[in-house]
Design a protein around this nucleic acid. Structure first.
Lengths: 147, 147
DNA sequence: CCTGAAATTCGCACCGC
DNA sequence: GCGGTGCGAATTTCAGG
């Protein structure tokens, strides 16, 4: 599916502020409410818009610890392993990558010992051969909106 | 600032669907519209809610290539370097980490040669000593909502 | 923190371009 | 396919308790 410039403008605006009405958006973009609304519906239907979420300041609600963990797998059923890891609520990202390790994950925790428990828990998952944990000292950017 | 269970419920629900009215939310949670609305306003004011965004299917709009890039820095002014890197629109995450490399970044691209150009561009940034690029073969999870 | 009513705003359908 | 108008419904806001 390809988007025209109208779709792109709408997407861009909804990424900046998902809580604005079709009317407001139409006003801003200089087109009719109907057009904006029907485009949004179309984008939702085609699952280009997957949903709308509030962006939370993780640190302010207590998630002060971010970790990036590399995983070396025993060489079969990596997909199953990744699915298993994805189930954890602390886990924000799970990527299957090229290079010397197989999988890299990003996870967030409130306490140091939660991270500790988590890493120990990883070792019990089938196919996890080895893990390398990196603690994030500073997050310079974390914004998955793409314009 | 600490949240009570009402705040948490509201946050959780807004993370699931940012485009629902305070009234709907109040109905679901069994409290009044006014209460919900004033809590939301409070959470916005305290910047616990940083904003509201539409979640987009990156692959469907053409970002089919994700890369994770490790960076080794010359050992001063890492912060400046990270700020510089954060400016790129393709860059979704920039993390300062412990371990053998200094910084790890996540970036998304539409084309293979965009990635290529990007990595070459990195080398020209002051303080970038060396980069290691991992191509993401599969994204098992990418969801930075924390309950 | 809730109730209730006022005032605003919204979404959608209809119609014309 | 896009835009304008209008109406019923839904939403926020403002009182008072």
């Amino acid at each position: 599916m390809n988007l025209d410039s109208t779709d792109e403008k709408i997407l861009k605006n909804l990424m900046m502020d998902a809580r604005q009405s079709a009317r407001q958006l139409a006003l801003k973009l200089g087109m009719s409410t109907v057009t904006v609304l029907s485009r949004i519906k179309k984008l939702e239907k085609e699952k280009i818009i997957k949903g709308y979420t509030a962006t939370i300041d993780h640190e302010k609600i207590g998630y002060s610890l971010t970790a990036i963990i590399e995983i070396v797998a025993k060489n079969d059923k990596i997909v199953d392993m990744e699915e298993e890891i994805s189930k954890f609520e602390n886990v924000c990202g799970v990527y299957d990558i090229t290079g010397s390790t197989d999988t890299i994950i990003i996870a967030k925790f409130k306490e140091r010992n939660e991270l500790s428990k988590f890493v120990k828990g990883l070792a019990t998952i089938p196919n996890v051969e080895n893990t390398i944990t990196h603690v994030v000292l500073n997050t310079a950017k974390e914004d998955f909106r793409l314009t």
